[in-house]
């Protein structure tokens, strides 16, 4: 089970029931596109014994049943899949537009983010809402999309001590990442607003709003509009 290096990716074992296909070690849409394409190819190949395929920023985890397949056979199949042209990811599709009521009680850290960028709150909102983000991965809790890349001027670092409770729908920034808390959880991100949209709802036919590779754009709404949409 030694590491296998081929050009620009390598395969590492994570115990006897998972392996990780790793690409270049950086947060980069090009690298992420490769990871998503390989994940889709593995998923699409419906390989016997594969239990779960999880693309992340720069890697793909493949969970398998070692009694139904084995590491070497799986690696051979992965290599075959990685030769295929990249399948469809979100690139080129129109971005998903998500309304956000910025600031006030919903975004207690908006003043700090504006101060970080030495600008007004209105300018910080304009920058956050004026960027098209990529969903790099979904993880942490069901439906939490790690999005980027946040403009360096408002890329304030996360809090040293996380808040104990962040309300669902809260939009936050952590460095170059932005995201929406789908459920009430603890959280250390800079909270700048809230959306009436639910990223995850197990009772909906399509439970998840976003998947890795999607494009997302935020737009500002006022409190009246927020209440109307809730």
């Amino acid at each position: 089970m030694s590491d296998i290096f081929t050009g620009s990716f390598r395969v590492v074992a994570a115990g006897d029931s998972a392996l990780i296909v790793e690409f270049e070690e950086r947060i980069d849409p090009v690298v992420n596109d490769r990871a998503i394409a390989v994940a889709e190819a593995i998923q699409g190949a419906a390989i016997a014994g594969v239990r779960d395929v999880v693309p992340t920023y720069r890697s793909v985890a493949v969970y398998f049943d070692p009694l139904r397949t084995d590491y070497d056979r799986l690696v051979a199949q992965l290599r075959e899949q990685s030769q295929r042209p990249a399948a469809t990811s979100g690139v080129g599709r129109p971005p998903l537009r998500i309304p956000v009521c910025y600031g006030g009680d919903f975004g207690p850290d908006l003043p700090a983010v504006a101060e970080f960028g030495q600008m007004s709150e209105a300018e910080a909102i304009q920058i956050h809402a004026g960027t098209i983000y990529r969903v790099f991965m979904v993880g942490f809790v069901p439906g939490f999309a790690y999005m980027g890349i946040v403009d360096a001027r408002i890329a304030a670092p996360r809090h040293a001590t996380p808040r104990v409770r962040v309300p669902p729908g809260t939009v936050g920034i952590a460095g170059v990442q932005t995201g929406i808390y789908p459920a009430q959880t603890p959280g250390g991100w800079q909270l700048i607003g809230r959306t009436p949209v639910k990223p995850f709802d197990a009772t909906r036919p399509e439970a998840f709003l976003m998947k890795a590779g999607d494009a997302v754009e935020f737009y500002a709404i006022d409190r009246v509009e927020y209440d109307r949409l809730t």
Binding site: G15, S17, I20, E25, I27, T56, Y57, R58, S59, A61
Partner: peptide, 10 residues
């Protein structure tokens, strides 16, 4: 590290 998957037993 750049966040990645967390298998059972890791």
């Amino acid at each position: 590290i750049i966040s990645d998957a967390t298998p059972l037993g890791v």
